[in-house]
Nucleic acid binder design. Structure first.
Lengths: 143, 143
DNA sequence: CTCATTGCAAACTCTTTGCAATAGC
DNA sequence: GCTATTGCAAAGAGTTTGCAATGAG
């Protein structure tokens, strides 16, 4: 997988640096959809001198290479996902965690929209909001 | 409609001010899904002394009264919609305009997600991205 | 008359940019 | 060695907050 990133970077004329590999690896290894700061904090122990700016600059390149997609779940900051397939996301209103939603077929819905609008469709993002199992329990316990 | 806002504000113990009415009216009168700054600019001629801070504070209250919903179309700023029914939105990648998508039935899709996830669903936002008719023509003309 | 609200400015958060030092190739 | 990249600090954008003056009830 890192080989792949290395090749992709080189092919596009980008240099391969340990920072870039680390940032992509961190993203590819998690399902938590971290923000730039979360990635920065996670890499802090291993790369103590790395700056937030480098995280942002690298994400910019990864976007260009189609290695990450950007999520806008309604927070102040963006979140990033190394899984670039088109799948819906759900955010817990209690703890703020963001999960993937697999196993849902949106093609019928997209087809409907496509036939309804005079836009030419290029992509879509589906966000759901609710309570994750853990927060449901906590809420129940309080009341 | 303004009567309604007036009543709603009073009922919740908020004072009714010309600024608040103007901001809500501006939102209710447009389908452009303006950002706070767009609202501010639009009201500038009529309320030259009104500040951006007032726009933000008022939107906060309107959210509380369920008179507006917040959109996150992937820009740096939030956009607001006085139509609080649950409908998808589409953003033009060319000019940045945001339109409503009516006449699509998402209930089947939502039901699918609901049965697939162990979250309790509270809401959702569907964003589509593409090219509006006007931008399609311009792109065609250029190439 | 009282207290919420306004409008200004300053603060804050997230992200981007400029630039000298550094490190890929 | 050349040039892209890093890391720092400073700048920018969007939003929020503090506070004295104002205005709604």
């Amino acid at each position: 997988m890192d080989i792949c990133v290395t090749t992709l970077l080189r092919d596009k004329g980008f240099k391969v640096t340990p920072q870039r590999l680390a940032i992509y690896s961190a993203l590819a290894a998690t399902k938590a959809h971290p923000s730039a700061e979360m990635i920065y904090n996670e890499l802090q122990p291993v790369y103590p001198t790395m700056s937030l700016a480098t995280v942002y600059k690298t994400i910019e390149i990864l976007k260009e290479l189609n290695l990450v997609q950007v999520l806008n779940v309604g927070e102040d900051s963006f979140r990033y996902d190394a899984d670039t397939t088109n799948h819906p996301h759900i955010r817990c209103m209690g703890c703020g965690r963001v999960d993937d939603l697999y196993g849902v077929d949106s093609s019928e819905f997209i087809k409907q929209v496509s036939s309804q609008t005079d836009y030419t469709l290029q992509g879509q993002q589906f966000y759901f909001y609710g309570m994750c199992p853990r927060c449901q329990k906590q809420t129940a316990a309080v009341s």
